[in-house]
Protein backbone atom coordinates (compact mmCIF):
# COMPACT_ATOMS: atom_id res chain seq x y z
CA UNK A 1 0.00 0.00 0.00
CA UNK A 2 1.37 3.33 -0.93
CA UNK A 3 0.46 6.84 0.05
CA UNK A 4 -0.73 7.55 -3.47
CA UNK A 5 -3.26 4.71 -3.27
CA UNK A 6 -4.71 6.19 -0.12
CA UNK A 7 -4.95 9.60 -1.73
CA UNK A 8 -6.47 8.05 -4.83
CA UNK A 9 -9.08 6.35 -2.70
CA UNK A 10 -9.84 9.52 -0.75
CA UNK A 11 -10.04 11.53 -3.95
CA UNK A 12 -12.59 9.22 -5.54
CA UNK A 13 -14.67 9.08 -2.37
CA UNK A 14 -14.72 12.83 -1.79
CA UNK A 15 -15.46 13.65 -5.39
CA UNK A 16 -18.28 11.11 -5.47
CA UNK A 17 -19.74 12.39 -2.20
CA UNK A 18 -19.68 15.97 -3.50
CA UNK A 19 -21.64 14.86 -6.55
CA UNK A 20 -23.94 12.78 -4.37
CA UNK A 21 -24.80 15.83 -2.28
CA UNK A 22 -25.20 18.03 -5.34
CA UNK A 23 -27.61 15.55 -6.89
CA UNK A 24 -29.13 13.88 -3.84
CA UNK A 25 -30.33 16.90 -1.84
CA UNK A 26 -32.23 18.49 -4.76
CA UNK A 27 -33.67 15.09 -5.62
CA UNK A 28 -34.83 14.67 -2.02
CA UNK A 29 -36.39 18.14 -2.06
CA UNK A 30 -38.17 17.33 -5.34
CA UNK A 31 -39.42 14.07 -3.91
CA UNK A 32 -40.78 15.99 -0.95
CA UNK A 33 -42.35 18.80 -2.96
CA UNK A 34 -43.96 16.71 -5.66
CA UNK A 35 -45.84 13.90 -4.06
CA UNK A 36 -46.45 11.87 -7.24
CA UNK A 37 -42.70 11.86 -7.84
CA UNK A 38 -41.89 10.73 -4.32
CA UNK A 39 -42.51 7.03 -4.73
CA UNK A 40 -40.69 6.86 -8.05
CA UNK A 41 -37.62 8.74 -6.82
CA UNK A 42 -37.31 6.88 -3.54
CA UNK A 43 -37.89 3.56 -5.21
CA UNK A 44 -35.30 4.26 -7.91
CA UNK A 45 -32.55 5.22 -5.49
CA UNK A 46 -33.33 2.18 -3.41
CA UNK A 47 -33.01 -0.08 -6.43
CA UNK A 48 -29.71 1.60 -7.29
CA UNK A 49 -28.37 0.75 -3.87
CA UNK A 50 -29.65 -2.79 -4.08
CA UNK A 51 -27.66 -3.52 -7.24
CA UNK A 52 -24.36 -5.18 -6.35
CA UNK A 53 -21.57 -2.62 -6.52
CA UNK A 54 -19.47 -4.68 -8.88
CA UNK A 55 -22.43 -5.19 -11.20
CA UNK A 56 -23.19 -1.47 -11.17
CA UNK A 57 -19.56 -0.60 -11.95
CA UNK A 58 -19.53 -3.24 -14.69
CA UNK A 59 -22.62 -1.79 -16.30
CA UNK A 60 -21.24 1.76 -16.16
CA UNK A 61 -17.96 0.54 -17.57
CA UNK A 62 -19.77 -0.73 -20.62
CA UNK A 63 -20.60 2.90 -21.39
CA UNK A 64 -17.65 4.82 -20.01
CA UNK A 65 -14.80 2.34 -20.16
CA UNK A 66 -12.34 1.62 -17.37
CA UNK A 67 -11.15 4.48 -15.20
CA UNK A 68 -11.90 6.84 -12.37
CA UNK A 69 -14.96 8.38 -14.03
CA UNK A 70 -16.70 5.02 -13.91
CA UNK A 71 -15.85 4.63 -10.25
CA UNK A 72 -16.98 8.12 -9.26
CA UNK A 73 -20.29 7.76 -11.08
CA UNK A 74 -20.79 4.31 -9.60
CA UNK A 75 -20.17 5.59 -6.08
CA UNK A 76 -22.42 8.56 -6.72
CA UNK A 77 -25.34 6.34 -7.75
CA UNK A 78 -24.65 3.86 -5.01
CA UNK A 79 -24.57 6.45 -2.23
CA UNK A 80 -27.57 8.39 -3.47
CA UNK A 81 -30.15 6.54 -1.39
CA UNK A 82 -29.28 7.69 2.13
CA UNK A 83 -28.98 11.32 1.05
CA UNK A 84 -32.23 11.42 -0.93
CA UNK A 85 -34.13 9.41 1.67
CA UNK A 86 -32.95 11.47 4.61
CA UNK A 87 -33.55 14.78 2.88
CA UNK A 88 -37.12 13.80 2.11
CA UNK A 89 -37.63 12.28 5.55
CA UNK A 90 -36.23 15.33 7.30
CA UNK A 91 -38.58 17.59 5.39
CA UNK A 92 -41.63 15.45 6.07
CA UNK A 93 -40.75 15.32 9.77
CA UNK A 94 -41.07 19.09 10.13
CA UNK A 95 -43.73 19.70 12.76
CA UNK A 96 -47.04 20.45 11.01
CA UNK A 97 -47.55 23.24 13.54
CA UNK A 98 -44.37 24.95 12.42
CA UNK A 99 -45.38 24.55 8.80
CA UNK A 100 -48.79 26.03 9.50
CA UNK A 101 -47.37 28.96 11.39
CA UNK A 102 -44.99 29.67 8.51
CA UNK A 103 -47.87 29.58 6.07
CA UNK A 104 -49.98 31.67 8.39
CA UNK A 105 -47.30 34.34 8.43
CA UNK A 106 -47.69 34.58 4.70
CA UNK A 107 -44.45 32.92 3.59
CA UNK A 108 -44.47 31.71 0.03
CA UNK A 109 -43.78 28.09 -0.66
CA UNK A 110 -40.19 28.49 -1.83
CA UNK A 111 -39.33 30.93 0.95
CA UNK A 112 -40.80 28.54 3.47
CA UNK A 113 -38.79 25.67 2.11
CA UNK A 114 -35.58 27.61 2.21
CA UNK A 115 -35.95 29.41 5.53
CA UNK A 116 -38.10 27.12 7.64
CA UNK A 117 -38.19 23.56 6.41
CA UNK A 118 -34.63 23.09 5.15
CA UNK A 119 -32.94 24.35 8.34
CA UNK A 120 -35.07 21.98 10.39
CA UNK A 121 -34.24 19.09 8.06
CA UNK A 122 -30.49 19.74 8.13
CA UNK A 123 -29.68 17.21 10.88
CA UNK A 124 -31.37 14.45 8.86
CA UNK A 125 -29.55 15.48 5.71
CA UNK A 126 -26.25 15.43 7.55
CA UNK A 127 -26.95 11.93 8.80
CA UNK A 128 -27.69 10.88 5.23
CA UNK A 129 -24.43 12.35 4.00
CA UNK A 130 -22.47 10.65 6.76
CA UNK A 131 -23.95 7.30 5.81
CA UNK A 132 -23.13 8.02 2.16
CA UNK A 133 -19.50 8.74 3.07
CA UNK A 134 -19.06 5.52 5.02
CA UNK A 135 -20.68 3.48 2.24
CA UNK A 136 -18.47 5.14 -0.39
CA UNK A 137 -15.25 4.41 1.48
CA UNK A 138 -16.18 0.71 1.53
CA UNK A 139 -17.49 0.43 -2.00
CA UNK A 140 -14.54 2.29 -3.52
CA UNK A 141 -12.58 -0.88 -2.83
CA UNK A 142 -14.14 -2.27 -6.00
CA UNK A 143 -12.48 0.51 -8.00
CA UNK A 144 -9.42 -1.60 -8.60
CA UNK A 145 -11.42 -4.04 -10.74
CA UNK A 146 -12.49 -1.32 -13.16
CA UNK A 147 -9.16 0.43 -13.37
CA UNK A 148 -9.69 3.04 -10.69
CA UNK A 149 -6.95 2.08 -8.25
CA UNK A 150 -7.19 3.03 -4.60
CA UNK A 151 -6.80 0.95 -1.48
CA UNK A 152 -8.69 -1.91 -3.12
CA UNK A 153 -5.70 -2.36 -5.39
CA UNK A 154 -3.40 -2.69 -2.42
CA UNK A 155 -5.64 -5.34 -0.87
CA UNK A 156 -6.08 -7.23 -4.12
CA UNK A 157 -2.35 -7.31 -4.79
CA UNK A 158 -1.65 -8.34 -1.21
CA UNK A 159 -4.08 -11.24 -1.51
CA UNK A 160 -2.32 -12.40 -4.68
CA UNK A 161 1.11 -12.35 -3.11
CA UNK A 162 -0.08 -13.71 0.28
CA UNK A 163 0.89 -10.54 2.11
CA UNK A 164 -1.26 -10.68 5.25
CA UNK A 165 0.28 -7.63 6.99
CA UNK A 166 -0.60 -5.42 4.03
CA UNK A 167 -4.17 -6.74 4.00
CA UNK A 168 -4.50 -5.89 7.67
CA UNK A 169 -2.89 -2.48 7.42
CA UNK A 170 -5.01 -1.63 4.37
CA UNK A 171 -8.12 -2.64 6.28
CA UNK A 172 -7.13 -0.41 9.17
CA UNK A 173 -6.51 2.43 6.78
CA UNK A 174 -10.01 1.99 5.38
CA UNK A 175 -11.55 1.88 8.83
CA UNK A 176 -9.59 4.95 9.84
CA UNK A 177 -10.67 6.76 6.72
CA UNK A 178 -14.33 5.91 7.35
CA UNK A 179 -14.18 6.93 11.00
CA UNK A 180 -12.07 10.00 10.25
CA UNK A 181 -14.42 11.33 7.59
CA UNK A 182 -17.41 10.53 9.78
CA UNK A 183 -15.86 12.42 12.70
CA UNK A 184 -15.02 15.40 10.53
CA UNK A 185 -18.61 15.48 9.34
CA UNK A 186 -19.88 15.24 12.90
CA UNK A 187 -17.70 18.17 13.94
CA UNK A 188 -18.79 20.20 10.94
CA UNK A 189 -22.39 19.50 11.87
CA UNK A 190 -21.80 20.67 15.41
CA UNK A 191 -20.20 23.90 14.24
CA UNK A 192 -23.08 24.51 11.93
CA UNK A 193 -25.54 24.20 14.79
CA UNK A 194 -23.56 26.32 17.19
CA UNK A 195 -23.87 29.15 14.70
CA UNK A 196 -27.63 28.90 14.90
CA UNK A 197 -27.91 27.98 18.54
CA UNK A 198 -29.69 30.35 20.92
CA UNK A 199 -26.66 30.32 23.23
CA UNK A 200 -24.83 32.63 20.87
CA UNK A 201 -27.55 35.20 20.63
Amino acid sequence: MSWSMVMEHLFMVLLAVLFTIALGVPLGVCAYCFKPLRRVVLWSVEILQTIPAMALLGIIMVFLGAGKATVVIGLLLYALMPVVQNTCLGLTEVDPGVREVARGMGMMRFYRLLHVEMPIAIPYIFTGIRIAVVISVGVAVFATFVGGGGIGRAIYQAIRVHDVPTIISSTFTLMLMAIGLDTVMALAEKRLYSRFSPAEK
Binding site: G138, V141, G152, I155, I159, I167, L174, M175
Partner: peptide, 12 residues
Protein backbone atom coordinates in the same frame (compact mmCIF):
# COMPACT_ATOMS: atom_id res chain seq x y z
CA UNK B 1 -16.91 -0.82 7.78
CA UNK B 2 -14.57 -3.73 7.02
CA UNK B 3 -15.01 -4.49 3.31
CA UNK B 4 -16.01 -8.03 2.39
CA UNK B 5 -12.91 -8.44 0.26
CA UNK B 6 -10.81 -8.48 3.40
CA UNK B 7 -12.61 -11.47 4.90
CA UNK B 8 -12.49 -13.26 1.56
CA UNK B 9 -8.81 -12.52 1.14
CA UNK B 10 -7.77 -13.57 4.63
CA UNK B 11 -9.79 -16.81 4.57
CA UNK B 12 -8.44 -17.58 1.12
Amino acid sequence: TVPGIVFIGLLF
